[in-house]
């Protein structure tokens, strides 16, 4: 959606620059062209460009390892690198032993968080890779089964505990950025389709029922951009607040599913075909929602905390939130 004047100008500039690159490059090449690793090479003080890159990546539905790198941004620790290369973080999926690695290639090292052990390197990620029996619509996320993996402790539990919160918060905010981009993509495509496709001698977008469906989708997306932008603006000044990152990720998942459903309804049966342009971003978003806490689990956790503590979280102060964006 064209709402650049409503969102932070710096951030929109980074995002649009990334989108231009992602229109021509993917994988490590896109990261190099954007200077992605430079973003956090100096200690991850301002990760806004990284989140902007991920939003653009979602919108373009391109695959890079950016999300896996972002999770470990700022952990200036020589022990993490394998063969001089930065490893990718394998984000937990649900309550199982599975992790998902974004944009992984056969040469990439993978680091995961194992409670009780610390941050561990997966010795041979390809050997424990889930192999789907049928083609997948989107191969962005590689799923590893840690039950079958040989792992080596890189950062022991005693040290990992201090890093855990930041890794989870960055993963959640980064995944939310991608989900926001995917949401944009689906909404933009659905609105475009509705403006072209004619039934009963009129375009679909001329029917009030269609207009209101799309307006609700735009409203969902608007609230996500507002909360997301506040979290990202805050990330420039220090670590992301874990409760805010959790809320943003939960909202991103919920909004994505709502908008995807609207997009499918608006585009009709054609969108339920393998080849349709909606299929890949839809399945990518479904998978991203499962990373580092699904929206369903996070929403329940948010409710549980509010009930047991008797406090409805404010998540950000007006002083900081409004003035900084």
């Amino acid at each position: 959606m064209a709402d650049g004047d409503l969102r932070p100008a710096d951030y929109v500039g980074f995002r649009d620059a990334a989108a231009a690159i992602l229109g021509r490059h993917s994988g490590a090449g896109a990261l190099d062209a954007f200077g992605f690793t430079d973003v956090y090479a100096d200690g991850a003080e301002d990760l806004r460009p990284a989140y902007a890159f991920l939003e653009a990546q979602g919108s373009c539905c391109v695959s890079t390892p950016a999300l896996g790198l972002l999770a470990l941004a700022g952990l200036d620790d020589d022990r993490l690198a394998t063969d001089g290369r930065s490893p990718l973080f394998g984000a937990p999926v649900g309550r199982s032993s599975l992790v998902a690695v974004p944009g992984m290639t056969p040469d990439d090292g993978v680091l995961v968080d194992r409670r009780g052990s610390g941050l561990v390197a997966v010795e041979d990620p390809s050997a424990v890779r889930r192999t789907p029996p049928a083609p997948v619509a989107d191969d962005y996320l590689t799923v590893l089964d840690l039950d079958r993996a040989e792992c080596r402790v890189v950062v022991p539990e005693g040290e990992a505990e201090a890093l855990r919160e930041g890794i989870v918060a960055r993963t959640r905010l980064g995944a939310a950025a991608e989900l926001l981009g995917l949401t944009d993509r689906l909404l933009r495509d659905a609105a475009g389709y509705a403006g072209q496709r004619a039934q009963f001698g009129r375009t679909l977008s001329s029917f009030q029922a269609m207009q209101h469906l799309l307006a609700w989708a735009a409203t969902e997306r608007h609230q996500l951009t507002c909360l997301f932008d506040i979290a990202v603006a805050g990330s420039a000044a220090g670590p992301v607040d874990p409760e805010l990152a959790r809320a943003v990720k939960a909202m991103a998942g919920r909004v994505f599913h709502a908008v995807a459903q609207t997009a499918i309804q608006v585009t009709g049966a054609i969108s339920f075909t393998w080849e349709h342009s909606l299929n890949r971003p839809h399945q990518r978003g479904m998978a991203l929602d499962q990373l580092a806490g699904s929206s369903a689990d996070l929403v329940a956790a948010i409710g549980r905390q509010a009930r047991t503590e008797g406090v409805v979280p404010e998540l950000f102060a007006l002083a900081a939130g409004a003035a900084d964006t």
């Binding site: 608007h222 609230q223 996500l224 507002c226 909360l227 932008d229 506040i230 809320a247 939960a250 909202m251 919920r254 996070l298 929403v299 329940a300 956790a301 948010i302 409710g303 549980r304 509010a306 009930r307 409805v312 979280p313 404010e314 998540l315 950000f316 939130g321």
Partner: peptide
């Protein structure tokens, strides 16, 4: 409850 808290966060942010 979590769902309403999240909706409230959306209103606050907007």
């Amino acid at each position: 409850l979590g769902s309403v808290v999240l909706q409230l966060a959306g209103v606050r942010a907007a």
